[in-house]
Amino acid sequence: MSNVFGKFKPYNTIIHRLDPRLKFFALIALMVMCFLPYGNYANRFIVLGVLALIIVVIMIIAKINPVSIFSSLKSLWVMMIFLLIIFVFVQQGVDTSSLHPMIIFPNGYTLYWEGLLQTLHVFLRLILMLCLTLILTSTTAPMDITYALDWYLYPLKLIKFPTQIVTMIISLALRFIPTLLDESQKIMKAQKSRGVDYNRGFISKKIKSITTLIIPLLVSCFSRSVELSLAMDARGYDPYGKRTSYKILKFHVRDLVSLFVTLLIMSLFIMACAYSSFYPGADNILKLLFGVEAF
């Protein structure tokens, strides 16, 4: 379980040292950029290609292997095939006159190139989003993400929403993930030694054997939570009381620079989006540049 996808790895790169609040903002900003409408498919692929390039560069700086995402997420391929079936075989839109036919079956049923392109497009978007999230989670300690969240929840404090309770819950949950993983491993071993087989059998049998893991885990979770609450109580935790914070987030020059870079990238993408939607001639420029007929 040591090499879980997206697990925080404590390297000391510039990406790791960036302020978590900034990373959070950049994540959301770049995710939105994945989903802006960039006109026709040629435009979309060029824009997403540029975004992919930026993401790959960030990944290399952060010492994440960009190829690892494919090997660590095998289910991605299943999803790709699923999307392909949906987009290629399910007829899209009513007006098919502007689409480019790929295969025409004898009974008149047509598969269009657009279906294939759309699959690729959605797939690319998903992969880019995954990469972005991966960058955040593998370069930011879980607790730092909580601090960032706490900072972003600040407006809710003004309407007397107890944000500190929410962040305390999240940070405790994060704190106990490794402990409970450890515990589940122990329970699994204990049950295996009593003859439970987690690996073989039909799904119904597997589900049955999983209950032998889930129930002891839940029971121990409850007893842990009781002890934890006592320990917190003993150290004077008052959820509604005023607390100071040991850890404070500092905004460095590098964060400011990165913020500008993020905003710059954002504005470029927004411009590309605006350009392609308001200027119909965009297709022709692409044709001029790459000599391809834009879809």
């Binding site: 607790m143 935790y237 607390r243 040991y246 850890k247």
Partner: peptide, 15 residues
């Protein structure tokens, strides 16, 4: 309670 040694020692002080 804390995520690191220092934040755990600080927990009661924060309270």
């Amino acid at each position: 309670i804390g995520s690191t040694v220092e934040s755990d020692i600080a927990f009661g002080l924060e309270n």
